[in-house]
Simulated assay, not measured.
Amino acid sequence: MKEEYREQYRKFGLNVVYYRKGLRITQLQLAELLDIQRSHISAIELGNVGVSFDLIFKMCEVFNIKPKELFDFRD
C-alpha cells in the first residue's frame, strides 16, 4: 500500500466497522459470512490492507448496500 493512500484505507476500514456494527455482528461473524479470517477483517478495519473487488462486492451483499457507500468517506 502506498503511504499516500493510507488515510483512504483507514476511512474505508471505518466504513466497514460502521456497517458491521449496524448489523450488530462481530468481526468473527462477518469473517464467516465473507469466508475470510477474522484477522483479515481486523486488518481491513484498521486500514492496514487492501481489499479485492470480489470482497467489496461480497461485503455489499452482506451489508445490503451499494459499493459506493463503502467509499463515501465522512469527515
Rank of each mutant, 00 (worst) to 15 (best):
K21M: 15
K21D: 13
K21C: 12
K21W: 08
K21A: 09
G22H: 15
G22A: 08
G22F: 14
G22C: 09
G22T: 12
G22K: 15
L23K: 15
L23Q: 15
R24E: 15
R24L: 15
T26W: 14
T26Y: 13
T26H: 13
T26M: 14
T26A: 13
Q27L: 09
Q27N: 08
L28I: 08
L28S: 10
L28P: 02
Q29F: 06
L30Y: 02
L30W: 02
A31F: 05
A31H: 05
A31R: 08
E32Y: 04
E32C: 04
L33P: 02
L34T: 01
L34G: 01
L34Y: 02
D35R: 07
D35H: 09
I36Y: 08
Q37F: 08
R38T: 13
R38E: 12
S39R: 13
S39T: 13
H40E: 12
S42P: 00
A43G: 03
A43Y: 11
A43W: 08
I44W: 00
I44N: 01
E45S: 03
E45A: 03
G47M: 03
G47R: 02
G47P: 03
G47I: 05
N48M: 09
V49N: 04
G50H: 04
G50P: 03
G50C: 04
G50A: 04
V51D: 02
V51L: 04
S52N: 05
F53Y: 10
F53D: 10
D54F: 10
D54H: 11
L55K: 12
L55N: 07
L55D: 06
L55W: 01
F57N: 09
K58I: 04
M59S: 03
M59T: 06
C60V: 01
C60M: 05
C60K: 03
V62G: 02
V62N: 04
V62C: 05
V62W: 06
V62I: 13
F63I: 05
F63M: 08
F63R: 09
N64G: 11
N64A: 12
N64D: 14
N64S: 14
I65A: 05
I65K: 02
K66P: 00
K66T: 04
K66I: 00
K66E: 12
P67Y: 09
K68V: 13
